[in-house]
Each structure stands twice: as C-alpha cells, then as structure tokens.
C-alpha cells in the first residue's frame, strides 16, 4: 500500500498557503516591476505549482521515479521554448516583422 502521510493539518495548511499566494499573485500584478513583472508572476505560480505537486499529488512522499517522469516533461517544454526563442532572435527578427 502507498504510504499515508497526508495528514489533515498538512493538507489544510497547504490549501491556506495556496489561497494566500493567489491573493499575492493579484496584488503583485497591480505593482509595476518593469521587466520583472512576468518573472514575479511566474515565480509565485511556480511556488503554487510546487506545493500542489509535492503535497496534493504526494510527490514528496512517493518514489522519486514519478517526480523524474514529471520533471523530464517540464524540462522538454523549456527545451522547446529555448530553441524556438533562439530561432526567433537569431534569424526571424532580422528578416520579418515578427
């Protein structure tokens, strides 16, 4: 059987943390940090996502293979982004309006 580590208290604290972070997301969006706007928004979303993955989806307590599978998929999304962006800034920008 899988391990029962999800206690009532932990789950409730994670929910409260997620709700507080949602309020912070909205508040941060009202403040202008210039080029860091997107960075802060994604940082908070990242923290929220990590909380959901670790506690609600039990990755913290489970075998590492599941985290690895998930991590690899996220990594390849970044690979896609990296090479697409690289292509745009080195090639397309000089020849088109894009």
């Amino acid at each position: 059987m899988s391990i029962d580590n999800s206690s009532f208290k932990t789950n409730l604290s994670v929910l409260i943390a997620l709700l507080i972070l949602t309020v912070i997301t909205v508040l941060v969006a009202q403040v202008d940090f210039g080029i860091f706007n997107a960075f802060f928004a994604m940082l908070i979303a990242g923290i929220k996502g990590a909380l959901v993955l670790m506690y609600f989806m039990h990755l913290k307590y489970d075998e590492k293979i599941y985290s690895l599978i998930f991590g690899i998929s996220v990594f390849f999304v970044f690979v896609l982004y990296f090479f697409s962006k690289l292509d745009i800034i080195t090639r397309i920008i000089q020849t088109s309006v894009l």
Binding site: I69, S73, V74, V77, L80
Partner: peptide, 12 residues
C-alpha cells in the same frame, strides 16, 4: 505519471 507528462507536453 507518464500520461500526466504527455498532458504537460500538450499544454507546454
């Protein structure tokens, strides 16, 4: 989890 990985790739 493999299925969830394909979901991440789709939304990604």
């Amino acid at each position: 989890w493999l299925f969830l990985a394909t979901e991440i790739l789709m939304f990604g």
